[in-house]
Amino acid sequence: MSAAGTPVLETAARPPRSGLGATLAHAGYVVSENPVTGLSFGLLLLLVACAVLGPSLAPYDPLASDTAAALQAPTLAHPFGTDQLGRDILSRVIVAARLDLAIAVFSVLLVFVFGGLAGIAAGFFGGWTDRIVGRVADTIMAFPLFVLAMGIVAALGNTVTNIVLATAIINFPLYARLARAEAAVRRNAGFVMAARLTGNTDLRIVLTSILPNILPLMMVQMSLTMGYAILNAAGLSFIGLGVRPPTPEWGIMVAEGASFIVSGEWWIALFPGLALMLAVFCFNLIGDGLRDIVDPQRRT
């Protein structure tokens, strides 16, 4: 292929030098510059591995009960101990990663698409679009968000889809407002005017000039809300909405283990709680690293 031929159409948005190799090199630089970012990416890798390989990594069947081995403290055979039905907690924690991460990822993607686009439209076009998006966001913000999520799940039914939907809805104002503010700043930037002069329609301007420049910020926002979405899903399950037992899920496991803490069986609640904490921690840290990687200004 000729280097001079390809990079003009849509692919020209990326220079030939910064293909995958350059991006990886840049990511390597960012990680080496900030070890915490490296740590959080390692953690993410572990979580993703658990989510993808879940059942094959787990030493026991997460649903198999063994009343003879009930309520065992951590041992070599059961590193995280067993619960009241004798199920291996390590296996349950590993298998639960898939469901928790799936809820978080899908709800964040959903709100990114709808909240982000609504916010950009509001910021770019102003006027009525802005008013409508603004009032919808205000309405959602008027409720305590977790209570709103509870209400949505209770009204729509106790399914995973509805948890995803509820999590997406309560995050809508965050995305819409961020995107709106950023789009409004760029609406009158020189390069947007220049895009108008070169015959771009408004839709094209939004897609080629506004959206790509807001993306780094949105990425950070996504990473932060990912942690929040996991907490939200676990919280809903904890109070009995959402995922039902015996499905392994960190929130339910903490809820089930909570009553045993008083009697000394701390491990049932502790390990799923720890997994939850690490996941949230990981996504919050990754936000910063991600921003450094996707920002073209940092790439020299």
Binding site: A13, G190, T208, N213
Partner: peptide, 9 residues
């Protein structure tokens, strides 16, 4: 600077 899209070559 302002009149060039930062994400375009």
């Amino acid at each position: 600077t302002d009149s060039l899209n930062p994400r375009w070559t």
